[in-house]
């Protein structure tokens, strides 16, 4: 489904990923944890083509994302190829990134109509369903600025689901929210995880949530996978000292 093959990512002199390898199976929910600066966001942004790999190949559903086939060889992908592959991928951002000039409903229908070629009615109907799913049926005609952070994030989730992605990337989607709004968004994501078979890559500091939704947890440190396994093992009985101290730090923080 998603396959990193010797992926290297450098920002100038800083080598964030130094030949990363991992695979995510269809329908799998994988949580990426690790200290700040360990490269979690970078990994999601590479999959979303918001960043380009320095070296190596990322495969999405058997297609190279960062490259395209030219006869036998793989060459750097162009914009058109990337647009094609990333239609299958959706991303929800920490800062929501809704379009402030559009009402909620059009935020959700814009891409289905203009990217997937759905009819206005079709997109409209689906958007209404999704708004109901995220509990915001009454906000269809509101502008994003009239919504709370939690509501905006739920609209953003609806917006990405409207594209029927095979893969959903979630980067600290509750970090910008007031504490009392976090639970609603996490509950919604749990719902979605239960009722769909979308492959999910999740970056979060909410360890309880990670434990509930993930099939698998990957612990990163400085761009390297330190530990990789089911949450019960990685979070319950970590093998590595670095995982232990990280978990201790995060859990201590959320309890304090």
């Amino acid at each position: 489904m998603v396959h990193f093959e010797n992926v290297v990512k450098r920002f100038g002199d800083l080598e964030v990923l130094q030949g990363l390898n991992f695979q995510v199976q269809p329908g799998e929910r994988v949580t990426l944890i690790g200290p700040s600066g360990s490269g979690k966001t970078t990994i999601l942004r590479l999959i979303m083509t918001l960043e380009q790999v320095t070296d190596g190949v990322i495969w999405v559903e058997g297609e190279p994302l960062s490259h395209m086939r030219k006869g036998e060889r793989l060459v750097a992908a162009n914009e058109a190829h990337q647009r094609q592959v990333r239609k299958k991928i959706g991303m929800v951002f920490q800062q929501f990134n809704l379009f402030p000039n559009m009402r909620v409903l059009r935020n959700i229908t814009e891409a289905p109509v203009h990217v997937l070629g759905q009819s206005k009615e079709q997109a409209h109907t689906r958007a209404k369903e999704l708004l109901e799913l995220v509990g915001l049926s009454d906000k269809a005609d509101a502008y994003p600025s009239q919504l709370s952070g939690g509501q905006q994030q739920r609209v953003a989730i609806a917006r990405s689901l409207a594209m029927s992605p095979d893969i959903l990337l979630l980067d600290e989607v509750t970090s910008a929210l007031d504490p009392e709004l976090v639970a609603d968004v996490l509950d919604l994501l749990k719902d979605i995880a239960q009722s769909t078979d979308i492959t999910m890559l999740i970056v979060t500091h909410e360890m309880g949530f990670a434990r509930d939704v993930s099939d698998r947890v990957m612990m990163f440190d400085r761009g390297v996978i330190v530990e990789d396994g089911p949450p019960s093992q990685v979070m319950g009985d970590p093998e590595h000292e670095r995982t232990r101290s990280f978990l201790k730090a995060v859990l201590g923080e959320s309890q304090g």
Binding site: M48, T49, L50, R83, R86, K87, I89, G90, M91, F93, Q95, F96, N97, L98, F99, N101, M102, E110, A111, H114, V115, R159, S160, M163
Partner: peptide, 21 residues
């Protein structure tokens, strides 16, 4: 910057992104 990133994440084509967003 987040607006450009949302445009990419939704695969909106350039002309449409300019006109609508």
């Amino acid at each position: 910057k987040g607006q450009w990133e949302a445009i990419t994440a939704l695969s909106l084509p350039k002309p449409r992104a300019w006109i609508a967003v």
